[in-house]
């Protein structure tokens, strides 16, 4: 190991890689949230419960596919670059959020809903002002699972030319430069752990004190 290599890895390579990685994670999670929360809300309505079970089973199967296989399958279909990587990551980040949205909404006590209805709230207001706020901690925990997952599999996205921290790791492995390896791997681990901590803190903050489990 040499200091010179470390310097190059940290100051020349890492900022770029970190920025690309953060972009991939942010974009993927944003799109995943935009798709899965409405989907979860839709599937938890009593009318569409039947589709809910089918969708959940389908997403469950998708989730079982290893990340590296999804990335490898994305390449021939979608090509190289950041966009295919985001699509591939998106596939697997949907399940935790959809599942938790449904679980959270179903977990809201019927009494609370009835009380809200009795106060004259419309279905829409009950959803936005009662059900979603009460389900939010569980939804957020799904988002946390998905985020950690995307950071992790995001390192593999370097294989299809998306860049990011995986570039440093794979470059380090093929050139056998442990400095690159350590910088890339370390930053990836730190990013995943700190996002996990941040989101679980947020989860704790938005949980009403009465609902906190010790």
């Amino acid at each position: 190991m040499s200091w010179e290599n470390f310097r190059v890895a940290i100051f020349d390579k890492a900022p770029d890689a970190l920025f690309v990685h953060a972009t991939i994670v942010l974009v993927t999670i944003m799109i995943a949230i935009l798709i899965s929360i409405p989907l979860g809300v839709f599937l938890s309505r009593p009318k569409y419960k039947r589709f809910g079970l089918i969708t959940l089973n389908l997403l469950n199967i998708l989730q079982a596919i290893p990340g590296i296989a999804v990335i490898a399958l994305a390449l021939p279909i979608l090509g190289l670059g950041m966009k295919p990587a985001v699509v591939a990551l998106l596939f697997q980040s949907l399940l935790p959020i959809v599942r938790n949205t449904i679980a959270g909404l179903m977990g809201v006590s019927p009494d609370v809903k009835e009380a809200a209805g009795g106060m004259g709230m419309s279905q829409r207001r009950i959803l936005f002002e009662v059900e979603i706020p009460l389900a939010m901690p569980i939804i957020l925990s799904g988002i946390r699972t998905a985020t950690v997952y995307v950071v992790s599999i995001g390192t593999l996205a370097a294989l299809i030319g998306a860049g990011g921290l995986g570039n440093l790791i794979i470059g380090g492995l093929s050139l056998f430069r442990p400095e690159y390896l350590l910088v890339g791997a370390g930053l990836g681990a730190i990013m995943a752990i700190s996002l996990d901590r941040l989101l679980s803190y947020l989860e704790y903050r938005i949980t009403p004190p009465g609902m906190r489990v010790e």
Binding site: V148, V151, S152, I153, G154, T155, L156, L165, G166, I169, I170, G172, L173, P178, L181, L182, G184, A185, G186, G188, A189, A192, I193, D196
Partner: peptide
Amino acid sequence: FCIPSLSMFAILVT
């Protein structure tokens, strides 16, 4: 569990 798998392998190799 949060550590990306590629990172984990890479760190162990060194």
